[in-house]
Each structure stands twice: as C-alpha cells, then as structure tokens.
Design a protein around this nucleic acid. Sequence first.
DNA 1: TTGATAAACTACTGGTATTAGTTTATAATA
DNA 2: TATTATAAACTAATACCAGTAGTTTATCAA
Lengths: 191, 191
Amino acid sequence: MARKGLNTNCIVEAAAELIAERGFDQFSLQELADRLGVKKASLYNHIDSLSELTAHIGRLVFERMAEQLYSGAETNSPAEQLYHIAMGYRKFAKENAELYKTIVKMPASGSPDLIEKGQEIVHSLYPVLEACGLSEQEVIHFSRTMRGAMHGFITLEEAGFFGNAADVDESYFYMVKSLIQPLRDKDGERS
Amino acid sequence: MARKGLNTNCIVEAAAELIAERGFDQFSLQELADRLGVKKASLYNHIDSLSELTAHIGRLVFERMAEQLYSGAETNSPAEQLYHIAMGYRKFAKENAELYKTIVKMPASGSPDLIEKGQEIVHSLYPVLEACGLSEQEVIHFSRTMRGAMHGFITLEEAGFFGNAADVDESYFYMVKSLIQPLRDKDGERS
DNA sequence: TTGATAAACTACTGGTATTAGTTTATAATA
DNA sequence: TATTATAAACTAATACCAGTAGTTTATCAA
C-alpha cells in the first residue's frame, strides 16, 4: 500500500505508451493499472473518467506532433513550410498510428483543451499564410481545408479505403501540391 | 418463443435506425435485441459479431449516401457534377451524423465489402475525371484527394475542431472550389 | 407423421468502466 | 514530537458489455 507517487501526467504518459505498444482497441484501465503496479480503482484519484483520460492523451499526441512538425528550419518560403508540415503530419500519423487513433476515435466531441491544441498545429501558420496574400477569412478557410485534407486522407488510408491502384505516397503528394499551388500563384501575383 | 422472422437485413436496418436515434456510442446489442423483441443471444443466429454488424451498417450508409448523391441531374459539366457530389456528401454526413460515425469509428479496418461500396461512391466519377483530361493515375490521385478532403473536413467539423472564427459552410465551399478549379483550368486547356 | 433444421431461448463467462466505503502513508500543524 | 487532515492507495461491489454453450421449439420437407 506504499504510495507509488502517481499523478495525472505520468498516468497519461503511461497510457500513451501502452496504446502505442498494444494498440488503441486493446487499451483498458485494467492493463494500465497493472503496468503502473496499482489497482484499477486507484487511477480514479487522478483522473475523472476514461474519456477524460482519452482527451488528455489526444492533447499529448497533438503536442508531440507539433514538436516534430516545427523542428525543421523556419527559413524556407511559405509554400515550402506548408509542404514540410503536410509531409511531417502524415509521417507522424503513420509512425504513431495507434496513438493517432486516439484523435479519430475520440468519444463524443473533444475537450476544449484538446481542440485548442489541435488548432495550434495549423494556427502557427496564420502569419505565413497572411504573408502569401490571403485575407483574414481566407487564412481560416485554407487552414481548415488543409487540416481536413490531411486528417481525412490519413484516416481513409489507415482504414484501408485506398486500394492498390496507385501509389499512396504519390496521391498524398498530389493532394498537398494541389492545395499549395494556388498559394504560390497568389504569392507570385503580388511580386 | 414464436419466430419473429428476423434476418440479417432487418437487423442491420433496425441497428441503423437505433444508431440514428440514440447515437453511435449508446448503441449495444442488448438495446437492439430489446427493440426487436428478442433476446440478445438470438441475434447471433443472423450475425457473426458486433464488428461484422458494424461493417454491414457501414455498407448500408454508403449505399444510402450514393443513392442521394447521384439522384441529381447528370447533364451538368464535369466540374458541376463534382461540386454537386461534394455538397451532397457533406449534406448527407450532417443529416446522418451518427450513422456517418459508423464509418469513422469502425473497429480495425473495414471489410472488403464495405471498402468496395465506399470506393463506388467516387469511382463512378472516374470517366468524368478522365473527360477532364486527367491521366489514369491522376484520376486516382484526385479521387483520393477529394474523398480524403471531404471526409476529413466533415470529421473535424463534427468533432468541434473548427472554431467560430469563420463560417464553416464558406470554408467547405472554399475547399471544394480549390480542389475543382484546377480541373476547370485543365479542361479549358484542351478546348 | 417423422425428421431435420433454423431460430428462438436460458444461463453463463470473462471482460469493461465506475462507485462507495475503508485503510494507510504522507504532510502540515499544534 | 504528537496530532490531525488529506491524499492516495485499497477492497468489494455494481451494472453494463460482447460472446458462447447447450436446450427447446417452430417450421418446412420428405
């Protein structure tokens, strides 16, 4: 009955580790408690519910993704930065497929906290997009377009909805190019 | 113990109805059996498992969506047809939000049957896209792009990941326009 | 009428999240 | 240092869940 020094943070991180190892669908509080050397009920001293824990994990996933996404050079052109982010987004989602499902299969709608983290990922692009000559509204439209496209493509790919008729990497490249090209053009207009 | 005349079809349809009414997350075989006036175990005479049933429902959703999508006039230009489909896709997903989740939250990867139905929705556009001057590979890339974009946008919207900073309808319109415009241009080149 | 089969049933297993009430270790206070 | 309050662990239970084994019954075909 010695104290294990648990807290919300280390529970969330252990849960993320467990999901990454064993898969999202296999995850349970029982397994999590076992791994932490604690009884299942004890987790409730630190978390409110499974869905709250899931939201915490989702936020962690977004944080890690943002970290990886913006690690590269910031010195490129706006279009290059967008390209870099789009490629990094898919790379992260594929390398952390089970963790990414946390966002996809989230019960009900996400917590405000989670939503904010999710927006951060593309919100930091706002100044870049404005620099491309997009209006305030267009920046938001483009941001939503790109997030939706990336997320949807990855989700459908992961679920097996794309056949083998063409290389999926190429399709993603085609999509990203399609989305970014108009920005290059617009940027060109101004200069 | 009188026979209720159940079969796979009417179970799937009752399940879809239940999901539409009460929500995907509230659905259970117990509730489904109650509604059908039957014991839970009896369902297993007609279905193999919950996940198989979910796949059946997913297929039904795709069928209904395809029905609604292609009900309009076929006499428009290719770009107009694409626009019509994109708008219908989101309309259906919003009007049947809980049912649409069946596709999103599907356990593991979907069944081959389901995947085929999903592909049908956009595959019928192939000749249209080819008529726009797209190569065989480009047709597939564009199809994947559009499906991904539509699906992702709707999913993020439904999950509350888009704030109130701009009108969501306008953002969707922006996205669809962005994707279709290059096809108009390409079509124009040929003529 | 008999026999086979399909569809219902009962009763159960092992799993899940969650809660209530209890004990104990730590930290703060007198 | 002794006391007390609190946080963190515990035990034990509840109410669900999907799925299974074995049994009975209704229907159809021979």
